[in-house]
Simulated assay, not measured.
Amino acid sequence: MGKLQFSIAILTLSLISSFDSIQSATFTLTNQCNYPVWAGLLSGAGTPPPPTTGLPLQPSQSDSISMPPSWSGRVWGRTLCSTDSDGRFTCVTGDCGSGTVECNGGGAAPPATLAEFTLNGANGMDFYDVSLVDGYNLPMIIVPQGESGGNCNVTGCLVDLNRNCPSELRLRAAGSNGGDGGDESVACRSACEAFGDPMYCCNGAYSTPQTCNPTSYSEYFKTACPTAYSYAYDDGTSTFTCSSANYVITFCPAPANSRKTTGGSLSGESSGSGSLASGHGVVSSVMVFVFILTSVWRL
């Protein structure tokens, strides 16, 4: 009997230890844009959803989310959002098609800048990246905090690519800049979305790393944002790993600047507040500073 109780105790301790080793990460979403952003979250197949799948962020506002252990999925920002007379919520960029602030399993309509995560993946590591494969709608960076191992780099895109987006890739919205006739680009499409050519989409005869190569369009994204994914097989310089970390995801980190305006109020309330500077601490601020210097030097 004593031996059985001892075995049960050892098993219990083992289960507790295994549970403790898979910790949930906290995502802090911060809006440093000079316009409102509505964050969207989409879970990967077989992954439980986070506590919220959509939340509004006023300029300089932050909100934190405790993510499920081993979560995988995407985070992005929606812009130029409004609610129509029937109560349906839509956004000009990054819309998830749910008709509400919560995305409820809907993904971002391209073009959209995506933060992609797999938490507690192979060897207990988190894998993360910022992807422009589906195009770009606003600047974004990921900053890991409190990490205990891995290649925990800051990654993302600091540059406002909408300003110089090639004309054939521009997504325009009428009245998006105070009635300029919709000539301003509010997002920059991928060449795949714009043309549908397998050469740009990395499918068909171009579905392998050997046959799908960078193009002048993907190089536009890569030159401006060297650590972000620019096309489907851009793994070598764009995927990062970290362990036991929390993550700050910032929309429009300095020195990025954009001209988007909405003229409307947020649909919904957000409980958090704060700024990039107050949320990161000294170490993360230094990481962001180095990242900014590197990005500006490449321009």
Rank of each mutant, 00 (worst) to 15 (best):
P226Y: 05
R298E: 10
Y200L: 05
C81S: 11
G179W: 05
G149N: 13
T227L: 10
G124P: 14
S66W: 04
V290G: 09
G46N: 13
A9Q: 01
T239G: 04
S185R: 01
P36C: 05
C225W: 06
N123Q: 13
S70F: 01
D134R: 06
S190C: 07
G181W: 04
S82E: 11
Q145R: 12
S218T: 15
Y220P: 02
S284F: 02
F251T: 02
S64A: 10
G54S: 09
V286P: 03
L293A: 11
P144D: 14
R163H: 10
Y128G: 10
S62K: 00
N162Q: 10
G281Y: 03
M125E: 15
V296Q: 08
A224P: 01
T155C: 03
G150H: 05
P214M: 02
A108W: 06
G264P: 04
S218I: 05
G150D: 11
R259D: 14
Y128A: 09
H280A: 08
G107R: 05
H280C: 13
S258F: 00
R298V: 09
N153K: 09
G149D: 15
N120Q: 07
V101Q: 10
S17T: 13
S243W: 01
M287I: 01
K3Y: 02
V37N: 09
D95W: 03
C33H: 01
P56D: 03
A194C: 11
G94A: 07
F6L: 14
Y206C: 12
L266V: 12
V296T: 06
A194P: 13
